[in-house]
Design a protein around this nucleic acid. Sequence first.
DNA 1: GGCTGGCACTCGGTAAACTTGAGTGCCAGG
DNA 2: CCTGGCACTCAAGTTTACCGAGTGCCAGCC
Lengths: 357, 357
Amino acid sequence: MTPHADPAPRADASGDDRALNDRRAAILEAVVNQYIGTAEPVGSSHVADAPGVQVSSATVRSEMVALERDGFLVQPHTSAGRIPTDKGYRFFVDHLTAPGVLGPLQRRQVAQFFDQVHGEIETVLERATGLLSNLTSYAAVVVGPSHESATIRSAQLVGLSPQHALIVVVLSDGAVEKRTIDLENEPAAEDLAAAGAHLDAHLVGRTLRGPWTAPPSGSRPVDHLVASSLSALESLGGELESDQVFVGGPARLAESFEAVETVRSVLSILEQQLVVVTLLRDVLNRGLSVAIGTEHGYEPLSSCAVVVAPVLVDGHNFGAVGLLGPTRMDYPRTMAAVHVVGERLGERLAGGHDGGH
Amino acid sequence: MTPHADPAPRADASGDDRALNDRRAAILEAVVNQYIGTAEPVGSSHVADAPGVQVSSATVRSEMVALERDGFLVQPHTSAGRIPTDKGYRFFVDHLTAPGVLGPLQRRQVAQFFDQVHGEIETVLERATGLLSNLTSYAAVVVGPSHESATIRSAQLVGLSPQHALIVVVLSDGAVEKRTIDLENEPAAEDLAAAGAHLDAHLVGRTLRGPWTAPPSGSRPVDHLVASSLSALESLGGELESDQVFVGGPARLAESFEAVETVRSVLSILEQQLVVVTLLRDVLNRGLSVAIGTEHGYEPLSSCAVVVAPVLVDGHNFGAVGLLGPTRMDYPRTMAAVHVVGERLGERLAGGHDGGH
DNA sequence: GGCTGGCACTCGGTAAACTTGAGTGCCAGG
DNA sequence: CCTGGCACTCAAGTTTACCGAGTGCCAGCC
């Protein structure tokens, strides 16, 4: 339901990209809307029937020729209807679609979700992917922040067995990292405690980048423990680069695409978390909220569109929520869903989180 | 199971599950092997060509009739070859398949994996799914232990901001759990520390089942902090039930099945971690290492087979590795892979952690 | 007696011929 | 400039025919 009310994109045909006269825009809009619904090429007579197009099918046809010449539509074959190109979708998204609204049912789903959800950030983000994929029937992605700028708030050494201990590091963003270390010569409990305290004293305030050093403590066994802990912690540096990625509803992909081959390739992209993060980040950095078809440059996703919204916590970039569907997706609804969830998520995370209830 | 030289076992149709004479067994084996390779119904003449079957196609045909009558084979339609039923696969797995061996390439992959892999248990388990799905080209599942029997080794309270603190609990199995708590009235650092110490003193040794209580400490603000921490920790009880599940290579499912609908339903099963755990556990509990078709009772997985192996650490049940593929999977190879990885994983983890006594 | 080659038959799958109809481009007349 | 009309196109559906892999059955052979 997007009864295009805005006459913003005005006159001038002249075959150029950014400007379509009202009639062509209306025709393009009708084609996109119908194609999204039916997944079948749209013929001129159907377009002529559409509200907002008051001309005959013959006129529609001639306009369609122009739209095809300018790259907004294509014909799968002669004597078939038209299908929007990526460029056609792009124009639709940029100029023809009013900021969509969620249906009452979906609105309620969102409200209910944020009422009920509780627990740690990771849990909330994880569940949010489920919410998004339910709202839209597409696959959802949520990216949490990296720990790049987080600093160490606490370091602690806990003995697990005579041979093993765990070094537990708490970060300023609430994340907890841990590493197991081998205890070669079964140190005394006091030494363990002393090493823990020593680590805590010298690591707090640092970032995960290191350097992983601490001054001598004066005790030989303690220094040994500290050294093993520090070397174990070195691998934490790697963690800071990898943001947290949550994927929800991959099964929805199999609903969105007919070809099993497409499903496979898209799924295997989703398995590579790094790629997913990069993709979302790229799109956001380019100031887009939608990337259609090949716009994002990932070959296997050329039949996909990605809808992204940032998650801002107290005005800072926290992460992103995204959605992966076919290029013929319901953009208004999807964009609305992604936008709302991203926003609510930001509010939620800003407002703090109670651990219970 | 002694091959009963009864040429036409006419009367005992249902009882002869495990009593197939050698020839029929050889024919069944040939059918399964060829069907696994080609995914197409196998005709009598192809079976007659198979090594191990020294009779003419006519004889094969008459034996196939018997195998069909007894439910080991079916014909998709008259005048087509035969394909194995679940029962046929079952017989194949139970009686006809030698403990498979990995190829040299795969053997190397496994060796390399266990040489290189490092890090925390979770990481290892996660990566193991990747290994398994690469080895077999099917989707892999690894289930880690629940924290049911783990006890608390340490509890610590870390301030994150004036309004928030984190309660961090280290378990005897090396897992770390955390909960955020809201600080209503910005307590003093000393109170926070005191509350942490108090919690540690009284929680260590308990299980996640609780009870989440601690005696009064004598200080009002400290008790308040302790109370909020304890109530936040209550939700940890839920965690102990949910074991850790890792899924690898879901994209492989799209390779295994032709019908996109099958892919979808199997994927959506894999999304439900609880179901996956239950499934694997059920199969193991029934003493099986393979569940074929409907044997596991999950309707949407009726075209799947599940191969499972336990992961034993120091003789104790740690978890399980599993594999999900089409019923027409390469059982010998898959079973070998799952078995080897489960075993090596157990050995690996035995070197790393105490299971708590 | 059981195995085998031979034979008639079945029937899914493919290909060719034909039909259908949605959709197009073009054009002449309002 | 729009429109209705018209001839044309071509994918998809339908019909028909055919091929051949595969079967069941049987008479003869070892």
